[in-house]
């Protein structure tokens, strides 16, 4: 059975299916029970599975992540929701110093199979500190995996894979496209493997790497530039930010000889730098132009009346493509 679902509906369905499929799975977080989550990602799940499986917690992110670690050590598979990515900071200590290290410090005796789901990114007219994009923090931390879907189909399949993964996974959900569009999503359990990027649009002239809500912006820019100038850009959705799919990135750059990374996170020390470094290591001699980054500016994510100018736009991406191809 396949229907058209939004990304939010696809995420809700993945959680529903894993709760039914595996009794070790529990959901915990702020307002996820009676209220069904502030975005309704857990809508209806408390009524269906009861308060032992879908748990409204006190308002304390370190408490949520820290107790989820303890649950995971003792045989459960917690899926914790942090209400917005910027709210995770009080819990970062638990995530970076404990969830990420536990397997290593106990020499493999205790893993932490857990997922931290959190809405992230700008573009929804959120209040201050509701729009951050700090995926690089997590990708920089050994022991974590970092996943970002950019479509309903991938969101469901990636979340199921993340819940089934034996290691802690930070699952970043781009709020801007939670309800932006629908696509065909199969009904049952299926998996999109972690660590595999996807070529969303094929092309020969330049490779664009993007994830989350920027993927759609990059795709539109690629379509516009083809109409305007006839250049064909390949667009690659990274989907997993750690571990990166090196092979897909390198294969594409070897083919096109030009590359552009688009992310809404701040430019300095963002993942774009890591991807460019990877291209430098593996495909430097294939390059016909410097690899460009179109990224969020190095300023705090601003108040929403000016967020559209903070975020990379189609115009900025088109300009980046032109500068790279005409280099």
């Amino acid at each position: 059975m396949s229907r058209e679902l939004t990304m939010l509906q696809a995420i809700q369905e993945a959680l529903d299916l894993k709760l039914a499929d595996d009794e070790r799975v529990v959901l915990l977080g702020e307002d996820i029970g009676v209220n069904g989550g502030v975005f309704r990602a857990t809508d209806g799940l408390l009524a269906k599975y009861g308060e032992k499986r879908v748990i409204d917690t006190p308002l304390a992110e370190s408490g949520i992540i820290g107790t989820a670690i303890g649950m995971a050590l003792n045989g459960m598979v917690p899926v914790a929701e942090i209400q917005f990515l910027a709210f995770i900071f009080p819990g970062l200590e638990q995530l970076l110093s404990h969830a990420a290290r536990m397997r290593h410090r106990t020499r493999g005796q205790f893993g932490v199979p857990m997922v931290i789901r959190t809405p992230y990114g700008a573009g929804i007219r959120g209040p201050e500190l509701h729009s951050e994009s700090v995926e690089a923090f997590f990708a920089h931390t050994p022991g974590l995996k970092v996943v970002v879907p950019s479509s309903p189909y991938d969101a469901k399949g990636l979340l199921i894979s993340a819940i089934e993964d034996p290691d802690p996974v930070v699952f970043l959900e781009p709020t801007r496209i939670y309800r932006a569009f629908r696509e065909e999503v199969p009904g049952g359990l299926y998996r999109v493997p972690l660590g595999q990027a996807k070529v969303v649009r094929e092309g020969e002239d330049l490779s664009i790497f993007a994830w989350g809500s920027m993927l759609r912006t990059a795709l539109r820019a690629a379509e516009q530039i083809e109409q305007e100038r006839g250049w064909r850009c390949e667009v690659i959705d990274l989907r997993t930010l750690y571990p990166l799919d090196r092979e897909t990135i390198i294969t594409s750059v070897q083919k096109t000889g030009r590359a552009l990374v688009v992310h809404e996170a701040h430019k300095t020390a963002g993942l774009g730098a890591e991807i460019i470094s990877l291209i430098n290591d593996e495909a430097l001699l294939y390059l016909r132009a410097p690899v460009k980054r179109i990224a969020g500016f190095d300023v705090p994510v601003p108040m929403f009346s000016v967020e559209d100018d903070y975020l990379p736009t189609e115009a900025r991406i088109r300009q980046g493509i032109e500068e790279t191809i005409l280099f």
Partner: peptide, 25 residues
């Protein structure tokens, strides 16, 4: 039993979570 925790107080939450799993099961 876990190795001694270096970060002050962090292990209280791990114990709480492990106890939670005991209770749920």
């Amino acid at each position: 039993m876990f190795p001694g925790q270096i970060i002050i107080g962090a292990q209280l939450l791990h114990a709480t979570g492990a106890a939670w799993a005991c209770k749920l099961r």
